[in-house]
Design a binder for these strands. Structure first.
Lengths: 120, 120
DNA sequence: TTGACAAATGAATATCTGTTCAACTATAAT
DNA sequence: ATTATAGTTGAACAGATATTCATTTGTCAA
């Protein structure tokens, strides 16, 4: 009957509360996607890359200079961001130019900054 | 002159772009705080805890049942959330009741979900 | 064609982080 | 007092992840 097999090591104390919350909770897949989204921008390097790209389209070398990091590590992170569909790239000669491909991220940044300035 | 000592392994390709972006970029401390905030909600378990607490105040046992996890792991995560000031607790008898202490987080969830439903 | 440079990539390393396990505290009930 | 339960905590472990290093690809210039 209970959806808890053996993972939970205690009995329910407030059954009605638990049932009510369970009814309203999104499914596991939704939480995984949501957490993945925040994990994506929950890294200083990627935060800075996205902020930089929000200001201007840039090639990997430019980004490496702005962030003061190696091209390789930037490239690795750009690959992550590309796979997640938040940045797009365009090749021109030897250089590869990156741009933001998702405006939701900027919105999240704005609220995040608001939160930070509001608290400590 | 350049703020890049030896960390960056390439020369600037578009100096004006780099300079412009550098001027607009927030400082390192801001990025760390921002990334920490997103890291905090960038975990499935913590996401689910916060969602649950947004529905109703709950004790650790209730949460353990809702998430189908051990009390210990829930308690560890609650400690993280407490330290970051997003949840608050209230003791009553043997039980400890947790509530949300930050409405910004819920806002972030909303935009995150919007993004997820919009994309895949 | 050769050399130089931008970028990507795979493997290895180091670090970080979530869960488990065991021990402990505190409160309530018998 | 003793027992049971709610919750916390620290250490250990396992899995994830960011950076480094070495190598490779592709493009431009000489």
């Amino acid at each position: 009957m209970s959806r808890n097999e053996f993972s939970c090591d205690c009995n329910v104390i407030h059954q009605n509360v638990v049932d009510n919350v369970l009814k309203k909770m999104p499914n596991e897949d939704t939480f995984n996607k949501l957490a993945d989204l925040f994990k994506l921008i929950g890294d200083t390097t990627r935060c800075r890359i996205l902020f930089a790209l929000d200001q201007s389209e840039m090639c990997v070398c430019d980004l490496a200079n702005v962030l003061n990091m190696t091209k390789s590590s930037i490239s690795h992170q750009l690959a992550v961001l590309r796979r997640s569909g938040v940045v797009r790239c365009r090749k021109s000669g030897k250089e590869v130019y990156y741009t933001l491909d998702d405006e939701h991220i900027v919105k999240l940044f704005e609220i995040g900054l608001e939160h930070i300035n509001h608290k400590g």
